[in-house]
Structure formats: structure tokens, C-alpha cells
């Protein structure tokens, strides 16, 4: 076993040699969900651009998904090393407010009022998306017209839903149905649940089932077809816009109260809200929050709904209660 230990030690030594410590003095620490950071996320091109422009070093920490990021901030409390947090969605925003301080960015004037879920500007929207059902136009099913329409018997085993207990997309649909039907939302779920081929644990598996042809209709985003246009060169998969409206999800960026690099943090937020917008929008398949930004042609296949609901309009207690009654109705 000595050999093993020596081997491991040598490996560690080699790794440490190549690993440059990320933390330096006077670095701006940014917490983001981990698909943002890493080479594959938008950060790969954004951060160097920002550093080059401002001369401010950024230490980007991928801190899990939005909820894990929040949990971590809550645990760290006042001693958190984070200066900026990026990617808190509107539905969880209330958990972050205590830790953030408002920032009246000059860019705010380019951001539509209806996106500003936090009027105090502790969290500023940087991108948003809308949930929508995406359908396979070559599968021979009628394009559904509305949420109610999905309960029609012709869609038996043709719909893939996502569970609101384990997925933000599923949760988005639950809020969507509530915003549209009020407390009858649960009835809708019961009816459409009957039609559902499955209620997946998350978007990844749901969309995977959809692209493998298991069912022609799936819950996703209005922007989903963009990928198929850009990469598969097909317009076969289309997002369906319901006239009655769609649920939106808005991602915000905020500055920690505890930061000692306020100026640099503000510069970073402004950068994300201006030059960073396009990269983020494309990488996240979201619409940029800054209305001044022009999108590539493929986004023509990501129709913007006319009516958008946000979960911010639903009181926190009601949201918890909704999921509980959903659980009660669907899983007993």
C-alpha cells in the first residue's frame, strides 16, 4: 500500500504544481450557479473580457443551483466571501433580500418595469425566460391551443410534464396554472396528469424523453426551438404560445451587504447588464433583460408571449401551500 500512497502523493504534487490558486488579494468574489461558471458556461468568455476592460480580478465560484447558492449564503452569513451573487430567480428572491443591498444601476432604465420583480433593486434582472410547451410538428398531433386543451383525451400519453417538487421548471408550471386558474390549478394538474406519459424529475430527463420521441409535447421554454434551429437546422420542434399567457422566470444579480468592494461589484453588475447580455442570453437560452440588446436571427423561433405572469405576484405562503396541495392531490 505504500506504493499507493506514494503514487497519490506524487499525483497531488503534480496537480498542485499546475493548479494556480484562484484566490488573490483584491479579487471580486462572485457566486453563481455552476452552469454559469466553468469553461462551458458564459463565464468562459465574459470574465476575461471584464477583467481586461476594468482591470478588476474576478474569482467566480460555482455554488450549485440557485437553491444551493442561497443555502450556502445563509450558512456563511456575515462572513461570506461573496461580493456579488448571480442567478437568484424571482421565486426564491425573498430568501436573498436580507443579505443584499440595493443598487440603482444606470442601466436600469433599459430594463422593462415588468421584469423588475424587486422594486428596491436589491436584485436586478439580467435575463428572463418563459415556460412553454414545445411540440413536435411532425408527430401528427394537433397543436394544443391552451393549457385547458392539454386535458383533452386526444393527448393521452402525449405530454411530458415535470414535477414541481424537484424542478424549477415544474414549479414554474405550477405557478403558471395558479396564475391562470387560481385554486383550480390542482384540478388542471389532475386532468392533465392523466394524459401525461410521465411527470419527470427535471427538465433534463423530460426533454431527453421528448427528443427521443417518447411523447410529442413537453414542458420547456419558449426559447427551446432556437437550439434545434441553430444546431440541427430543423424547425420541426416549435414552442406553442398560448394567448392566455405564460409564466416567466427572471434571474437576478445582486450585491452583498457585506462586500468591501462595492465599487468593483457595481462595475461587474453594470457589465453583466450591458456587454454581458448577449453571451448570457445565448448560453442560457433566455431573453436578455436589457431591451436595447439585439438578438441573433435564430431567436425568431423563440416567440415572446404577449402576456407573462411572474411568481412574485403569488405570496410566499401561498406558494408553499400550492406545492403542498399539489403533493396531496397528485401523490396520495
Amino acid at each position: 500500500m505504500k506504493k499507493t500512497i506514494v503514487f497519490a502523493a506524487v499525483l497531488f504534487a503534480v496537480i498542485s504544481l499546475f493548479a494556480q490558486p484562484v484566490r488573490e488579494e483584491n479579487e471580486l468574489t462572485v457566486y453563481s450557479y455552476d452552469s454559469f461558471s466553468g469553461e462551458w458556461g458564459p463565464a468562459g468568455s465574459l470574465i476575461p473580457a471584464f477583467e481586461k476592460k476594468t482591470g478588476i480580478k474576478v474569482n467566480l465560484v460555482g455554488a450549485g443551483d440557485a437553491v444551493q447558492m442561497l443555502s450556502r449564503l445563509e450558512l456563511e452569513g456575515d462572513s461570506t466571501p461573496a461580493d456579488v451573487v448571480l442567478g437568484i430567480t424571482d421565486d426564491f428572491a425573498y430568501r436573498a433580500y436580507d443579505m443584499l443591498s440595493p443598487y440603482e444601476s444606470p442601466v436600469l432604465e433599459d430594463i422593462p418595469d415588468e421584469l423588475e420583480f424587486d422594486k428596491e433593486h436589491r436584485l436586478i434582472p439580467f435575463d428572463y425566460g418563459a415556460f412553454a410547451f414545445v411540440y413536435d410538428s411532425e408527430a401528427g398531433v394537433r397543436k394544443p391551443e391552451s393549457l385547458e386543451d392539454l386535458a383533452s383525451p386526444e393527448y393521452k400519453d402525449k405530454v411530458i410534464l415535470i414535477d414541481p417538487r424537484t424542478s424549477s421548471v415544474g414549479l414554474g408550471l405550477l405557478y403558471w396554472t395558479y396564475n391562470q386558474f387560481g385554486d383550480d390549478a390542482i384540478e388542471w394538474w389532475k386532468a392533465v396528469g392523466e394524459n401525461a406519459l410521465t411527470i419527470a424529475d427535471g427538465w433534463s430527463s423530460a426533454y431527453g424523453l421528448f427528443t427521443e420521441g417518447e411523447a410529442p409535447i413537453v414542458l420547456s421554454y419558449t426559447t427551446s426551438p432556437v437550439y434545434h434551429v441553430m444546431n440541427d437546422n430543423t424547425t420541426r420542434y416549435q414552442a406553442i404560445i398560448f394567448p392566455a399567457g405564460h409564466e416567466a422566470t427572471i434571474e437576478g444579480i445582486g450585491i452583498l451587504k457585506t462586500t468591501d468592494m462595492r465599487e468593483e461589484a457595481e462595475a461587474f453588475v453594470d457589465f453583466i447588464l450591458t456587454e454581458g447580455q448577449l453571451d448570457i442570453a445565448i448560453a442560457n437560452s433566455m431573453y436578455p433583460a436589457n431591451s436595447a440588446v439585439e438578438l441573433p436571427d435564430a431567436f425568431a423561433w423563440a416567440p415572446k408571449p404577449d402576456i407573462m405572469y411572474t411568481s412574485a405576484t403569488i405570496p410566499e405562503d401561498k406558494r408553499t401551500e400550492l406545492v403542498e396541495s399539489w403533493t396531496e392531490a397528485m401523490t396520495r
Binding site: 443551483d65 437553491v67 442561497l70 443555502s71 426564491f92 430568501r95 414535477d163 414541481p164 417538487r165 424537484t166 414549479l171 396528469g193 401525461a196 406519459l197 410521465t198 411527470i199 419527470a200 424529475d201 427535471g202 430527463s205 423530460a206 424523453l209 408553499t320 406545492v323 403542498e324 403533493t327 397528485m330 401523490t331 396520495r332
Partner: peptide, 27 residues
């Protein structure tokens, strides 16, 4: 994940799903 996707029915829920919900959704 397997139970939920392949089971095809939310009635097939495990304790783990519920813990996940309480942590991540209900906070």
C-alpha cells in the same frame, strides 16, 4: 430520478423526493 421519470406517476414518490421538496422548494 429513476422512480419519478420511469415510474410515470407522481404517486410513485419516495421519501427522498419529499426531503428534496422540503429543502429546495419549501426551504
Amino acid at each position: 430520478a429513476i422512480v419519478m421519470v420511469l415510474g410515470g406517476n407522481p404517486a410513485y414518490s419516495t421519501l427522498e423526493t419529499e426531503i428534496y421538496r422540503r429543502v429546495h422548494v419549501s426551504a
